[in-house]
Simulated scan of single mutants.
Amino acid sequence: MRRHPPRHPRQQAEHRQRRLLRRVARPRRTAHGPQLRRPHGRPSLNEPFGMVYLEAMSCGTPPIATATGGPARTITPNGPHATGWLVAPDNAAALADTLVAAVTDASERKRRSDNSRTHVHTTYSWTTTADRYLAAYDHAIQH
């Protein structure tokens, strides 16, 4: 039995938001494994580092996170090199607005997707990490 959308404007808006969120969370398969169809939203009140955001960005999935802890240091929310979106913690309205903006603007998602993949591969790759360790060891040996 098919359910009809509600008639009251407030209920219609809530119905559209629920449908939108179901569409955002539906995974799809890619050559690199499962990837979200839309930006990766994981708002957290306290995320010390945020490995899940880096993993999402390495797949080209721009994250939506709260501006706390690790995400505030690893996600660039503005400018030409933006890699995702940051929202204030405990601000449901800002989170909803950001989700809607991220889902409805395909060109911005693509730009942030490309930026996020590049950022992770140049900043957190094994080669870059190994070079940093070697530099730290060289510095420790010389001093």
Rank of each mutant, 00 (worst) to 15 (best):
G79I: 00
R28N: 02
R73E: 15
T98S: 06
D114R: 08
V24A: 13
L20M: 07
L54T: 06
G84K: 04
N91P: 00
L95K: 01
P39W: 09
H15N: 10
T128L: 13
L86E: 02
V100T: 11
R18D: 14
Y124G: 01
Y124M: 01
Y53Q: 04
H4Y: 10
A56T: 03
T127C: 03
Q142A: 12
R117N: 02
R117Q: 07
R22W: 08
W85Y: 10
H40D: 02
S107G: 14
P48V: 00
F49A: 06
L45P: 12
E108D: 12
E47C: 05
V120W: 05
T118R: 14
R19H: 00
P39R: 11
R7N: 06
P43N: 12
N46C: 12
L21F: 03
T83D: 09
S116V: 02
Y53K: 06
V24Q: 13
H119C: 07
T61N: 05
W126E: 12
G69D: 08
T128K: 12
A72F: 00
P63K: 10
E55S: 11
G69P: 05
A102P: 09
Q11W: 10
E47K: 09
P5T: 04
R29L: 06
R7E: 11
Q35Y: 01
T98P: 09
R42K: 07
A101K: 00
G79P: 05
G33L: 05
S107P: 01
C59D: 15
S44Q: 07
A102I: 08
P6C: 10
Q12G: 11
L36A: 06
L86A: 14
I64Q: 10
P48E: 08
H119A: 15
A31T: 13
A67V: 04
L95F: 02
Q17E: 13
N115A: 04
A67S: 04
T76H: 08
S44R: 06
R29D: 06
R26Q: 15
R29Y: 09
P71C: 01
T30L: 11
G84C: 00
A106I: 10
Q142P: 09
H32M: 14
R112N: 07
T76W: 00
D90E: 13
M57P: 11
A13K: 14
A31I: 00
N115W: 00
A56I: 04
H4I: 15
R28V: 07
Y53F: 11
H121M: 06
S44A: 03
W85D: 11
P48Q: 02
P71M: 05
R16S: 07
H8E: 03
S113Y: 06
P43F: 04
P34D: 11
Q35T: 11
A82E: 09
P71G: 08
A101C: 06
Y137N: 03
R22A: 13
H121T: 14
T122G: 08
K110W: 05
G70P: 14
S125D: 11
H139G: 03
D90M: 08
T83S: 04
A25H: 15
L86V: 04
A102M: 01
T76P: 02
P27H: 12
T118W: 14
A102T: 05
R29W: 15
T98H: 01
R112V: 09
P27D: 00
A140F: 14
H40M: 15
N115Y: 04
L36C: 07
Y124I: 15
L95A: 01
R117D: 10
A25I: 08
P39T: 08
P80N: 12
R23S: 07
A56N: 04
